[in-house]
């Protein structure tokens, strides 16, 4: 059997149900989910990290997420809300918030208290301390959290094809229905590539956005030249 024939057949790339369209759908779900999750999780995580109130909730939600079966969440919400875009989207947002929240919280929380003390002592007001000191220093962990969330969403959006969502997962589910293994393989390869490329792009973005001062500088001595952790929680995957 030619496993890869389906993937490289140009006929499968165009059209409303072709690979290109599904890829755009998949990216669309991911972008929409991330947008909502970031809008909720970064302000919330920054506030919790800044004030120190409710930290256990953040840690608890990130840990609980790991055990929560994504398929179970998807089918449950599809049952309650319906199988359009909304049900899966709610599930995706629920899964994307904890990593971003945990990353932001940990990032803000981990800023050296002496640095914050110095910022306040020099006459920065609360907003300036948060925007100019705490968030820039938290950025490596925030982006780490976003990376985890993106992987989680790309992965779960694939599974969401089971509850009739579009995207690349369709090839796996539709292929399965008609015993078309090459189509399933094509879908799987595309999803895997998408995840890898998305992660690389975000890694590049991380390099670009994070101040070089927060990275370890090999070969130069310095008492605090400790490498910043790349992700808040590299293990926060459950899909």
């Amino acid at each position: 059997m030619n496993y890869f024939g389906w993937l490289f057949d140009p006929a499968h790339w165009s059209g409303p149900q072709g690979i290109a369209a599904r890829l755009v759908e998949h990216l669309g779900y991911t972008a929409l989910t991330l947008l909502i999750a970031i809008a909720v999780a970064i302000p919330l995580g920054a506030w919790i990290g800044h004030s120190g109130r409710g930290g256990f909730l953040v840690v608890g939600s990130a840990n609980g997420l790991r055990a929560l079966p994504t398929l179970g969440l998807l089918v449950l919400l599809a049952g309650f809300i319906g199988i359009g875009l909304l049900g899966p989207l709610v599930a995706l947002v629920i899964l994307a918030i904890p990593p971003v929240l945990a990353g932001t919280y940990a990032g803000v929380r981990n800023v050296d208290p002496a640095v914050v003390d110095a910022a306040v002592g020099m006459g920065m007001r609360g907003r300036a301390v948060l925007l100019r000191v705490e968030l820039p220093n938290a950025l490596p962990l925030i982006i780490g959290g976003i990376r985890s969330a993106v992987l989680q969403v790309i992965s779960t959006a694939t599974i969401a094809a089971y509850v009739a969502l579009g995207g690349l997962g369709r090839f796996i589910i539709d292929g399965l229905a008609v015993r078309d293994y090459p189509q399933m393989i094509a879908g799987s390869i595309l999803v895997a590539l998408l995840a890898i490329v998305a992660d690389l792009v975000l890694a590049g973005l991380q390099k670009l956005l994070v101040s070089p001062g927060l990275r370890a500088v090999p070969g130069r001595r310095g008492p605090r030249a400790v490498p910043a952790p790349k992700t808040a929680d590299p293990a926060a995957r459950a899909a």
């Binding site: 694939t158 796996i172 799987s188 999803v191 895997a192 890898i196 995957r237």
Partner: peptide
């Protein structure tokens, strides 16, 4: 670790 489970 990046590869989605269903794909794997």
């Amino acid at each position: 670790f990046t590869i989605p489970s269903l794909a794997l």
